[in-house]
Protein backbone atom coordinates (compact mmCIF):
# COMPACT_ATOMS: atom_id res chain seq x y z
CA UNK A 1 0.00 0.00 0.00
CA UNK A 2 2.80 2.40 0.86
CA UNK A 3 4.35 4.08 -2.13
CA UNK A 4 1.08 4.34 -3.95
CA UNK A 5 -0.13 7.16 -1.76
CA UNK A 6 2.81 9.01 -0.47
CA UNK A 7 1.78 12.40 0.72
CA UNK A 8 -1.07 13.54 2.86
CA UNK A 9 -1.95 17.13 3.66
CA UNK A 10 -3.57 17.98 6.98
CA UNK A 11 -5.46 21.27 7.14
CA UNK A 12 -6.55 22.19 10.65
CA UNK A 13 -6.24 25.26 12.85
CA UNK A 14 -6.12 23.15 16.00
CA UNK A 15 -2.52 22.34 16.87
CA UNK A 16 -3.40 19.50 19.21
CA UNK A 17 -5.41 17.78 16.50
CA UNK A 18 -2.64 18.30 13.95
CA UNK A 19 -0.23 16.66 16.34
CA UNK A 20 -2.57 13.75 17.15
CA UNK A 21 -3.53 13.08 13.56
CA UNK A 22 0.06 13.31 12.35
CA UNK A 23 1.00 10.80 15.00
CA UNK A 24 -1.82 8.43 14.06
CA UNK A 25 -0.84 8.58 10.39
CA UNK A 26 2.85 8.11 11.17
CA UNK A 27 2.27 5.12 13.45
CA UNK A 28 -0.17 3.46 11.08
CA UNK A 29 2.26 4.08 8.17
CA UNK A 30 -0.57 5.06 5.85
CA UNK A 31 1.50 7.79 4.23
CA UNK A 32 5.17 8.46 3.79
CA UNK A 33 5.02 12.17 4.28
CA UNK A 34 2.71 14.61 5.99
CA UNK A 35 2.24 18.22 4.91
CA UNK A 36 0.90 20.17 7.87
CA UNK A 37 -1.10 23.34 7.24
CA UNK A 38 -2.58 25.47 9.98
CA UNK A 39 -5.03 27.26 7.72
CA UNK A 40 -6.83 26.94 4.42
CA UNK A 41 -4.78 29.85 3.19
CA UNK A 42 -1.50 28.12 3.94
CA UNK A 43 -2.74 25.01 2.12
CA UNK A 44 -3.79 27.01 -0.94
CA UNK A 45 -0.42 28.74 -1.07
CA UNK A 46 1.28 25.36 -1.02
CA UNK A 47 -0.96 23.90 -3.71
CA UNK A 48 -0.50 27.00 -5.89
CA UNK A 49 3.23 26.92 -5.58
CA UNK A 50 3.54 23.24 -6.45
CA UNK A 51 0.66 22.79 -8.81
CA UNK A 52 2.88 21.52 -11.65
CA UNK A 53 5.08 19.41 -9.45
CA UNK A 54 3.47 16.01 -8.94
CA UNK A 55 6.22 15.00 -6.56
CA UNK A 56 5.30 17.80 -4.19
CA UNK A 57 1.53 17.61 -4.44
CA UNK A 58 -0.36 15.64 -1.80
CA UNK A 59 -2.27 12.54 -2.86
CA UNK A 60 -4.81 13.09 -0.18
CA UNK A 61 -6.09 16.06 1.82
CA UNK A 62 -7.73 15.86 5.24
CA UNK A 63 -9.65 19.09 5.71
CA UNK A 64 -11.20 20.47 8.90
CA UNK A 65 -14.45 22.46 8.64
CA UNK A 66 -14.36 24.89 11.56
CA UNK A 67 -11.43 27.21 11.07
CA UNK A 68 -11.12 30.95 11.59
CA UNK A 69 -11.00 33.21 8.52
CA UNK A 70 -11.32 30.52 5.87
CA UNK A 71 -13.41 27.53 6.84
CA UNK A 72 -13.36 24.17 5.09
CA UNK A 73 -16.21 25.02 2.74
CA UNK A 74 -14.58 28.28 1.72
CA UNK A 75 -11.38 26.39 1.07
CA UNK A 76 -13.29 24.05 -1.25
CA UNK A 77 -14.75 27.03 -3.11
CA UNK A 78 -11.22 28.11 -4.03
CA UNK A 79 -9.99 24.55 -4.48
CA UNK A 80 -12.54 23.86 -7.21
CA UNK A 81 -10.85 26.46 -9.44
CA UNK A 82 -7.66 24.40 -9.64
CA UNK A 83 -7.11 22.49 -12.92
CA UNK A 84 -8.81 19.08 -13.11
CA UNK A 85 -5.45 17.33 -13.16
CA UNK A 86 -4.68 18.62 -9.68
CA UNK A 87 -8.17 17.88 -8.35
CA UNK A 88 -7.93 14.32 -9.63
CA UNK A 89 -4.59 13.83 -7.94
CA UNK A 90 -5.42 15.47 -4.61
CA UNK A 91 -8.48 13.77 -3.19
CA UNK A 92 -10.19 15.60 -0.36
CA UNK A 93 -11.87 14.12 2.71
CA UNK A 94 -13.30 16.19 5.49
CA UNK A 95 -12.15 15.44 9.02
CA UNK A 96 -14.27 17.25 11.56
CA UNK A 97 -15.81 16.90 15.00
CA UNK A 98 -19.03 18.50 13.78
CA UNK A 99 -22.40 17.08 14.72
CA UNK A 100 -24.23 19.81 12.92
CA UNK A 101 -26.71 18.25 10.50
CA UNK A 102 -26.34 21.17 8.10
CA UNK A 103 -22.54 20.86 8.03
CA UNK A 104 -22.77 17.11 7.49
CA UNK A 105 -25.23 17.43 4.59
CA UNK A 106 -23.20 20.24 3.06
CA UNK A 107 -20.03 18.16 3.23
CA UNK A 108 -21.71 15.14 1.69
CA UNK A 109 -23.17 17.24 -1.10
CA UNK A 110 -19.84 18.79 -2.10
CA UNK A 111 -18.59 17.13 -5.32
CA UNK A 112 -14.94 17.38 -4.29
CA UNK A 113 -15.38 15.66 -0.93
CA UNK A 114 -15.04 11.89 -1.14
CA UNK A 115 -15.97 11.28 2.46
CA UNK A 116 -16.78 12.94 5.75
CA UNK A 117 -14.60 11.45 8.47
CA UNK A 118 -15.40 12.23 12.06
CA UNK A 119 -12.89 13.07 14.70
CA UNK A 120 -11.34 11.30 16.47
CA UNK A 121 -9.62 9.77 13.47
CA UNK A 122 -9.53 6.00 13.50
CA UNK A 123 -6.67 4.57 11.45
CA UNK A 124 -8.80 1.64 10.32
CA UNK A 125 -11.47 3.91 8.96
CA UNK A 126 -8.89 5.93 7.05
CA UNK A 127 -7.26 2.78 5.76
CA UNK A 128 -10.60 1.44 4.46
CA UNK A 129 -11.27 4.72 2.70
CA UNK A 130 -7.82 4.78 1.12
CA UNK A 131 -8.25 1.17 0.04
CA UNK A 132 -11.31 2.21 -1.91
CA UNK A 133 -9.63 5.03 -3.79
CA UNK A 134 -6.04 3.86 -4.16
CA UNK A 135 -6.17 0.24 -5.23
Amino acid sequence: MAGKHKKVMLIDDNEVDLKINSKIITISKLFEEIIVCQSGDEALTYLNKHQDDDERLPDFILLDIQMPEMDGFEFLEVFKRFPDRLKEKCLVAILSSTLDFGDIKKAEANPYVIKLLKKPLFPKELEQLLGKYFS
Binding site: N14, V16, I20, I24, Q66, K119, F122
Partner: peptide, 11 residues
Protein backbone atom coordinates in the same frame (compact mmCIF):
# COMPACT_ATOMS: atom_id res chain seq x y z
CA UNK B 1 -13.85 19.78 19.67
CA UNK B 2 -11.47 19.63 22.68
CA UNK B 3 -13.22 16.52 23.97
CA UNK B 4 -12.70 14.84 20.64
CA UNK B 5 -9.03 15.86 20.76
CA UNK B 6 -8.77 14.12 24.12
CA UNK B 7 -10.34 11.00 22.62
CA UNK B 8 -7.78 11.24 19.81
CA UNK B 9 -4.97 11.33 22.36
CA UNK B 10 -6.30 8.15 23.93
CA UNK B 11 -6.21 6.55 20.48
Amino acid sequence: APLVSAMGIVN
